[in-house]
Amino acid sequence: MADLKGKGFDPLKMTDAEIMLRFREGEAAAFRVLYDRFVRRVFSMAYRFSRNYETARDITQEVFLRLYQKKDLYNPEISFNTFFYRLTYNCILNYIRDHRDTLSENEPTPVSFSSSVTPEQTAFANELLKNIEKRLDELPEKQKTAFILNKIEGLSYEETAQVMDTNINTVKSLIHRATISIMEIKDE
C-alpha cells in the first residue's frame, strides 16, 4: 500500500467510484482494492441466491472477471453501486438461468455459531435464522432481489431501481411486500 501511496494512489481516502476510475485508466492495483472491498459482499449475495458455497464462489469470480474485462464500460456519471451491482445481479441471473437444474440439488452449507453460545441458544437462533432465510428464499425473485439490494446491501431505492431496470415505485412496492412476508414469519 505504501508504494501505491507513493504514486499518489491512496485508496483509504478514495471512494469506490474514484478507485474504479483509476482502474479504468489502467491502474492495476485499483482492481485489487475494489476486490478487497466487495468480494465478501458479492459472495454473500451470490450465496443468498444459490445456497451453495462452490456456486457462490464461482459467481463471485465471474463478477470480478467481468469487472476486469468491462472496466471501459464504467461511466462515472452513473453511481458505482448501480454499475457494480447491476454487473453482479446479471451474473447471478445468468448463472441461475444456466444452472437451474443443478442448483435445486445443492446442499446448503451447515451453520456454525461461536462456542460461547449454549446449545439451546444455538438451536433457537438456528431455527429463527432458518425461518427468516427460508422466507427470503420463498419470495418471488424480484422481491428477493429488491429486498437484498436495498435492505441488506444498502442501495438506495433509485440505485435498486436502476440495477433492476425498473422504476422507483415498483421497487418500493416489491420491498414493501417482501418485508411484510419476512416479518410475518418472525411473528409466528
Binding site: Y47, V111, S112, I132, E133
Partner: peptide
C-alpha cells in the same frame, strides 16, 4: 431481522 440477515451465520464467510 435486518441486522440478523446482514450478519447471518447462514452465510459462510
Amino acid at each position: 431481522t435486518i441486522d440478523v440477515m446482514r450478519n447471518s451465520p447462514e452465510i459462510p464467510q
